[in-house]
């Protein structure tokens, strides 16, 4: 029983990872792509780790604990890394997609510029 549920959760996790990858290809600029990469890949990987926990439940306590710890680390580091990448990209002057509607960050840092579009 555990194994079946574990496999199902694994499939869900992989599906979200695939969505994240599709988003990475389809979305237009670095910021939108980061959205897909952080959200879908974080949850997808968490689901995979949950699947490990379910499959190992009752057999290997060590594995359950390790998977849980990995989940906590991913949930902390993934958004932090995305934040660093987005800020770095903006600081390096990477432009938003040309159909973006507003960029308050750029306006505030560099009042001379016009709004994008």
């Amino acid at each position: 029983m555990n194994e079946i549920i574990g496999k199902l959760v694994l499939v869900v996790g992989l599906a979200f990872n695939v969505f994240g990858c599709i988003g990475l290809i389809r979305l237009p600029d670095v910021y939108n792509r980061l959205q897909a990469a952080t959200k879908c890949v974080t949850l997808g990987t968490c689901f995979i780790l949950v699947s490990v926990m379910i499959s190992a439940w009752g057999e290997s306590g060590a594995l359950v604990l390790k998977a849980f710890l990995c989940m906590v680390f991913i949930l902390i580091t993934s958004p932090t890394a995305a934040h660093a990448l987005a800020r770095g990209a903006h600081a390096a002057g990477v432009k938003l997609w040309d159909q973006s509607v507003v960029d308050r960050y750029r306006e505030d840092n560099d009042p001379g510029v016009e709004e994008p579009e």
């Binding site: 599709i22 988003g23 600029d29 879908c40 509607v101």
Partner: peptide
């Protein structure tokens, strides 16, 4: 959030209207 992103990514028209707000 994930269902939301998955929807936007899989939708043929990609309903996005991105921008940076304060």
């Amino acid at each position: 959030a994930n269902v939301d992103v998955a929807y936007r990514v899989l939708h043929p028209d990609m309903p996005i209207r991105p921008g940076i707000v304060k």
